[in-house]
Design a protein around this nucleic acid. Structure first.
Lengths: 186, 186
DNA sequence: AATATAGGTGAACGAACGTTCACTTGTCAA
DNA sequence: TTGACAAGTGAACGTTCGTTCACCTATATT
């Protein structure tokens, strides 16, 4: 049952869509697409699949279990918002039309867990709040910094003891607010 | 032109598929689906869209620009593998069938940039190499640690000076290898 | 003034779509 | 042994699919 879902996800990964019933029949070795039809209906009942108002198929969920804290025996599933979010894209990128990806260079935010080589998602045009990580232009150089504002005074602080606090003089340019960090190993 | 791509991505986000030509005509206010057909062909020529062998539409790329290091003027696009990777799912999850998500508790890997509340993607069943971050069971408790092996001696090290090195006695259970970290702000 | 061109309409095509129905199995419980 | 049932076949249905064609404007170019 889960085997089937895996194959569907693989198909979706390659084709950006789910197969039709005739394609399903072919990939499962059925001679009749009605066999695929019945199989699909069972998956729908099991809550793995959904159907459009047009009958088009739609996968539910990301496919990965989300475990909360890991207990003595084995990981225990944790109910989370992410579980029924279908894709990490949707989870990480709220406003795709005004976001971009930035590969991190430098260690200015290392104590905030943002390391060199990480990819951050930056959202343009918002109003940064205190404690937000912003992409800011300081002395004609772009860097990541914590943003603080007290009255009219703006302060940019690196998450690294070796960097000084910065009080920009007028010419502060905010490139955007960091809304997410992703890092891949190997 | 890019406006259209945005609407397509929005549709794809909601429906997990791209619209048909009649749906396209409706969403753009065309009376004839042939108008949509011609529009789509221009997008294909522009490299924004692709077509199946069946004529089904397929979006190219993630939709977000990836900028390398940010220069004086404004971000400069950087060619990266991610750009033509269509989704962060594919980028972050290589083996969905043997991976799960884990919400990080504790600060044992804080110096590795893995903070409490982050979500890590854990891949089960692989053979950890030196320097990998593993989910390991130590004294019946699951924690994240750096993995080191020298001959027969396995060492687990936290990325946190306050934690001691651990030399497990036989009963070392590896839950999996951390392959990615994601963190969302706000 | 004549003409090419881009962008839209509307009808038509064969093919593929999702769905339904009647029928044939094999398997397991009563 | 019988009956129920799950699982697959094969044909058929109306609808929608992607695509093509002929035609109609406007707008811009020659």
């Amino acid at each position: 049952m889960n085997e089937i879902a895996l194959q569907l996800r693989k198909f979706a990964k390659e084709n950006h869509r789910l197969p039709s019933y005739s394609e399903l029949a072919k990939m499962f070795g059925f001679a009749s697409k009605n066999a695929a039809f019945k199989l699909v209906n069972k998956l729908v009942d099991a809550g793995i699949l959904e159907k459009d108002h047009k009958g088009k198929l739609k996968l539910k969920g990301l496919g990965l279990p989300m475990v909360g804290y890991v207990q003595a025996g084995f990981p225990s599933p944790a109910e989370e918002e992410l579980v029924d979010t279908l894709s990490l894209d949707d989870y990480l990128i709220q406003r795709p039309e005004s976001s971009f990806l930035l590969k991190v260079t430098g260690d200015s935010m290392i104590d905030a867990g943002v390391m060199e080589g990480d990819i951050v998602i930056v959202e343009k045009g918002g109003n940064p709040k205190n404690n937000d990580i912003v992409l800011a232009q300081v002395d004609k150089k772009w860097t990541l910094k914590y943003f603080y504002k007290n009255g009219k005074i703006v302060k940019l602080i690196a998450a690294n003891k070796n960097y000084p606090e910065i009080f920009p003089k007028e010419e502060l340019t905010i490139g955007g607010i960091v809304t997410a960090v992703i890092r891949r190993y190997r």
